[in-house]
Design a protein around this nucleic acid. Structure first.
Length: 946
RNA sequence: GCCCGGGUGGUGGAACGGCAGACACGGGGGACUCAAAAUCCUCUGCUCGCAAGAGCGUGCGGGUUCAAAUCCCGCCCCGGGCACCA
């Protein structure tokens, strides 16, 4: 709550006590030296960043990475660096364990957040972004993070986005060969068309003119211009990806209304990779929850496409449905289409057939009127209304279609419970086996035929479980699985359908009508079709614009990309290498979405200075190939769970394209993913439920007061909106960066959310003070350790600590590692005499990953002349891990009743004898029958009496 | 509704079937001090008891086991994700 006053108190404090001001001196000193000496520069096997003396060459590699931040202008709070500290501790630990560790940091600086912020401050995004990056790097450096600063990138650097554009061209110039399940260069598709080994979608290749051929290729490219229903957000002046729109139809950023509207936009054919994105999840060392989220997002379902002929209509008006339950086809009693299904206008009947129930007509004079009225009604309902009010409704089209397998004629409806965006936008309604169909059928008086036998007594709803087929002719008696297979067989044999797989995943909408993003390396000629800017003409530099702000527009208007205002930039000329020489073209005006730069930054970290290739193949192989035969990629990727779907799915997709085209050596970018938790903090609301400044709240008797008024406490993510931020600067002033690092690692397991308690930080500060006092004379500042060999007990305790700390660090259980180190230090505090050097060194080395400045300083004061960063982590001697005797608890019927001191090596029988000989145990078991004695040598005895 | 996590002292958390509560914060007591701060020592799950000790105890109810916070079954609560996905 209140910022603590520094605990360095009055005048009689020893001159060399480890307090905030000494911590500050030490931290600045070592940060300067690390910077000067390039301590964290990590050598590549070759190229500009290769190691001078080859000292790292023989070491195994480890690539540790954080999800890079948006350089926002508001500065850091103590919640931000949690993951960065975690990776830093792990990277330092692994360096000391003999690894060549790559760890750096970059900035995801394009995109809406940076631009919206710039819009509010009125500064040009580039000025603003660069200032923010400088500020953020300074704040991170102050934490003592051991990053290789030579490798830092920002996605807004021209030298970086040149390669983002290059990757875009790779994708644009590729198509997906569904037979071989790989992306291939588009030139190879042209060759296949030329040879006739593959046929175009749009007719005969030989007979196509140039424009038709280019249009044909658009249908195959992995990056293409597509006319699709998109999310148009007039307030932001741009379209958004599905992933950027919330469930209630608003923009994730800014919470503005979003409208669905068909527009011509850039798309990425991620759906081609749906199956590989799904199945390769099995190769990854990620948490189940993230894998599950990706699986749900991809949304694979197996089933069948089935064709339904419409009564009295031509073959061109056949309705295609997708179903996961082809086995229930005999139970189909209606057909339901999405209101916006393209066939609806053609299918709709001229008049209501004789005997149409009033309920089906919605009171309209003709089917066409009913459809028009229903569509209007649906359009007026927001997505939220639909969710809250999911009573089904629909109208009859006045026509019937025919169920292929039994010739039954069933009515065709439209209803808003069928979505155009999934499957074929049409469902065969089987009320007996689908609850939604049941609801609709009961409402509209549609027949219900059960085709799976429900359990006895089951009634009143659809039965979706397993069971034998009934009312289904040749399927009768079969269980669901075999019945599905049999029905698919029948459909294929009679050419009425086929087995099929559908995905929820849609192609990725890749263009934005924004200024602050990567320009597309695309131009248009007189045919109006996109052409690639040649690779050797990259980068296409974002033009300087004074008026870069997006216009707020209304629902009906067309997007106005700000780049359209850069007239001279837009109208340009290129020699496109197509034999036509230099000619006039116009540029693509859209920019790429924020995700583009973050899709591949890990690759640029590897070889950031290379201007010949994206990344040198040898360097890529060194860092991205796994020695243990796992899939390879970044060894540890740490970040927030909010990127579970978007960023991680897009990056995997790009990586797979690059893999197919031979630019990277493995199919996946991130071997192991770890989600750090969030730091929560108490926030306080007054009577009007308005948040008040948490720092000004005082506690009395478990109640909380702000300016005399009682307020209520809640916990939430630290930040401006809850007015509960604590800044690292305050923590440096009160304790120093090492204390902040130590506290954040001690609060709990890295993957868990944890509440910030400023008053608890003192505990971590005290630990460092006690360690300091055990090794340094507080009055003189001189080293206070002793060269004599440590006594056996203390030496054993040291080795047990080494053992425990090593395994805790390996598992990222830093809180447990710190607890063990505290215990060893408590032993030292109680130890009578100056600390033995061997123990002091081991303790300092073990602390080094956690509190690097503090450890460097102790290391130097105790007489070492080299940096501790590359020293070996201590190794536990197995002989020293056990004591000669051990105290063993003795249980009677599972309850501890005595403890005996025995030789550690004592075997089961001897241990049992020793336990039974204990007077208290003898007393408790005397007279009772001893049924069994369980012994775990060195651990426990349990005497079972009857 | 479905799918993931998670529920342990006053608080953060520890314990990978074997002594529940390590370590820390907070709190009590003591030493040092004229006094305070800092430091050091010590106690601190709950109940009963002067004590030795006993009983209870890891969200709730069952089960497996010599032994369960941990494994199994059924509930409850909290957090997150998805949601008319055919």
């Amino acid at each position: 709550m209140t910022t603590p006053t520094p605990p360095d108190a009055p005048d009689d404090t020893p001159a060399h006590r480890y307090d905030a001001s000494l911590a500050d001196q030490i931290e600045v000193k070592w940060q300067d030296r690390w910077q000067r000496e390039g301590t964290y520069n990590t050598p590549n096997p070759s190229g500009l960043l290769a190691d001078g003396d080859g000292a790292m060459a023989g070491r195994p590699k480890l690539f540790v990475m954080d999800m890079f931040p948006y350089p926002s202008g508001s500065g850091l709070h103590v919640g931000h660096p949690l993951g960065y500290i975690g990776t830093d501790v792990f990277a330092r630990f692994k360096r000391m364990m003999g690894y060549n560790v790559l760890h750096t940091m970059g900035y995801d600086a394009f995109g809406l957040p940076a631009e919206e912020h710039a819009r509010q401050t009125g500064e040009h995004p580039r000025v603003n972004t660069e200032a923010n990056i400088a500020n953020m790097s300074r704040q991170l450096a102050r934490l003592g993070l051991g990053h290789d600063s030579r490798r830092s990138i920002a996605t807004t650097d021209v030298a970086y986005y040149r390669w983002t554009q290059w990757i875009f061209l790779q994708i644009f110039n590729s198509w997906y060969d569904a037979d071989r399940q790989v992306a291939r260069p588009i030139d190879e598709l042209v060759e296949e068309f030329d040879r006739g080994s593959r046929q175009p979608i749009g007719g005969s290749w030989a007979e196509m003119d140039e424009q038709q051929r280019r249009a044909e290729l658009e249908h195959h490219r992995l990056a293409y211009l597509g006319e699709a229903p998109v999310n148009w957000c007039p307030a932001l002046g741009t379209v958004l990806a599905n992933e950027e729109v919330t469930a209630d139809g608003r923009s994730e950023r800014g919470n503005h209304p979003v409208f669905r509207r068909p527009m011509r936009q850039w798309m990425m054919r991620i759906t081609a990779y749906a199956d590989r994105l799904l199945s390769d999840l099995d190769l990854l060392d990620w948490t189940d929850s993230i894998k599950t989220m990706q699986r749900n997002w991809i949304g694979r379902s197996e089933g069948a496409h089935i064709s339904f002929e419409v009564q009295g209509r031509s073959d061109e008006e056949v309705i295609e449905v997708f179903t996961t339950r082809p086995d229930t086809l005999f139970g189909t009693t209606a057909m339901v289409l999405a209101p916006e299904h393209p066939l609806v206008d053609r299918l709709v009947g001229a008049a209501w057939p004789e005997g149409t129930p009033d309920l089906w007509t919605a009171g309209a004079a003709t089917p066409a009127e009913a459809v028009a009225a229903y569509r209007r009604r649906v359009a007026e309902m927001s997505d939220l209304d639909r969710q809250e009010n999911n009573t089904k409704s629909g109208v009859y089209l006045g026509v019937e279609c025919v169920v292929p397998v039994n010739g039954r004629r069933v009515p065709v409806f439209i209803s808003d419970y069928v979505l155009m965006g999934y499957g074929t936008g049409a469902v065969m309604s089987v009320p007996g086996q689908d609850q939604r169909d049941w609801d609709f059928a009961t409402l509209y008086g549609i027949d219900i035929v059960r085709t799976v036998e429900p359990p006895a007594g089951f009634d009143g709803e659809a039965y979706v479980g397993d069971g034998p087929a009934i009312n289904s002719d040749f399927l009768d008696g079969m269980e669901v699985g075999p019945a599905k297979a049999a029905m698919i067989g029948w459909l294929e044999e009679h050419d009425r359908g086929r087995g099929a797989i559908t995905y929820k995943l849609r192609d990725w909408l890749f263009s934005r009508q924004r200024y602050w993003g990567e320009p597309f390396p695309i131009v248009y000629d007189e045919m109006g079709l996109p052409l690639a800017v040649p690779e050797d003409q990259l980068p296409v530099v974002l033009p300087e614009l004074i008026d870069w702000a997006p216009r707020a527009l209304d629902e009906q208007s067309e997007p106005e990309p700000p780049l359209g205002r850069a007239t001279e930039w837009v109208h340009t000329h290129y020699d496109l290498g197509d034999g036509r020489g230099d000619r006039e073209v116009v540029r693509e005006l859209n920019t790429m979405p924020q995700w583009a730069g973050s899709c591949w930054y890990y690759l640029r970290y590897l070889d950031p200075t290379n201007d010949e290739v994206l990344v040198d193949p040898g360097v890529e192989q060194y860092w991205m190939t796994d020695a243990q035969g796992r899939v390879g990629g970044v060894d540890l990727y740490v970040g927030g769970v909010e990127h579970a779907v978007l960023h991680l799915l897009y990056a995997r997709f790009w990586h797979k394209v690059l893999f197919d085209l031979g630019h990277v050596s493995g199919p996946e970018p991130f071997q192991r993913l770890y989600n750090q938790g969030y730091i929560q903090a108490a926030a306080f609301q007054d009577a009007r439920e308005i948040y008040v400044d948490a720092e000004a709240v005082v506690e009395r008797d478990g109640r909380f007061y702000f300016e005399g008024q009682e307020v209520t406490r809640k916990f939430g993510k630290m930040g401006k909106s809850l007015k509960n931020s604590v800044t690292p600067d305050d923590m440096y002033a009160a304790f120093g960066a090492d204390t902040l690092r130590l506290y954040e690692m001690f609060m709990g397991p890295l993957d868990q959310d944890r509440p910030w308690e400023t008053k608890s930080v003192i505990g971590s500060h005290r630990l460092l003070q006690r360690v300091w006092r055990n090794l340094v004379d507080e009055d003189t500042g001189a080293c206070a350790i002793d060269d004599a060999a440590p006594p056996p007990d203390l030496w054993r305790a040291t080795h047990r600590t080494i053992d425990a700390v090593t395994s805790a660090m390996e598992d990222l259980r830093f809180n447990s590692a710190i607890a063990r180190l505290t215990e060893l230090n408590n032993d030292l505090t109680r130890y009578d005499g100056p600390t033995p050097r061997a123990v002091a060194d081991a303790l300092t080395l073990m602390l080094a990953p956690l509190v690097p400045h503090f450890a460097e300083e102790l290391w130097e004061r105790s007489g070492h002349t080299t940096s501790i960063v590359y020293e070996d982590f201590p190794v536990a001697d197995p002989d020293l891990l056990t004591e000669e005797t051990v105290e063993v608890p003795v249980q009677v019927n599972g309850k501890v009743r005595a403890r005996i001191q025995v030789a550690t090596q004592l075997d089961g029988d001897a241990l049992a004898a020793a336990a039974l000989a204990d007077p208290r145990i003898a007393e408790l078991t005397g007279g009772a029958e001893i049924r069994k004695v369980i012994t775990v040598p060195g651990k426990l005895v349990n005497v079972v009496v009857g």
